[in-house]
């Protein structure tokens, strides 16, 4: 090591010792920062800017989405309303279930799947809640049919009833 310094003759430590000290200090303080500032939210890339939440009004777009085999149509309403009537091919996915079921659902999707959500009417927030939660859990693009189920069925278009 350095022979001209009298103090270091007693401790001939290599560079790796000092590297280990710095890394250990960093490990300890990262644990402390986790205690002080709380755990980093693993729910995902909130700052990522290529996430898309798209509201659309167009009934004909909804019709073409319904005829597309890649579309996954989610009914964000209460399951009891879903049981009474729903858009053709819709799957019941209540917004309140999104935090618990979201990951499993997103993993079950095939590549290229297009997620479309709807609620009962324009001012019902459930479709948006569902979409926001799924985006947080890793979905990249979700469409929301803003007019909702009521407007769809009032327009005389086909609905699915049990």
């Amino acid at each position: 090591m350095d022979s001209n310094s009298p103090s270091s003759a007693a401790s001939p430590r290599g560079l790796s010792f000092y590297l280990a000290v710095i890394l250990t200090l960093a490990l300890i303080s990262s644990g402390v920062s986790r205690l002080i500032f709380g755990p980093a939210d693993p729910s995902g890339p909130a700052l990522e800017t290529n996430l898309k939440l798209i509201f659309f009004e167009d009934f004909s777009l909804m019709e073409s989405l319904l005829s597309n085999p890649n579309t996954v149509l989610l009914d964000a309403r209460d399951p009891r309303l879903y049981a009474i009537g729903r858009l053709p091919g819709a799957v019941s996915f209540p917004a309140e279930d999104a935090p618990s079921r979201g990951q499993t659902f997103l993993r079950s999707l095939s590549a290229g799947a297009k997620i479309v959500a709807y609620c009962s009417e324009r001012f019902c927030p459930l479709a948006e809640e569902l979409a926001t939660s799924l985006l947080k859990q890793g979905a990249s693009e979700i469409l929301v049919f803003a007019p909702g189920y009521d407007a769809w069925s009032e327009s005389g278009r086909p609905v699915e009833r049990p």
Binding site: L25, A26, S30, G31, P42, G44
Partner: peptide, 18 residues
């Protein structure tokens, strides 16, 4: 995804001590 929160705490700490 497992490593992301760990690095979120570790990287700033390492930068500080370095």
């Amino acid at each position: 995804d497992v490593l992301t929160p760990i690095f979120a705490h570790f990287l700033p700490s390492l930068e500080f001590w370095v």
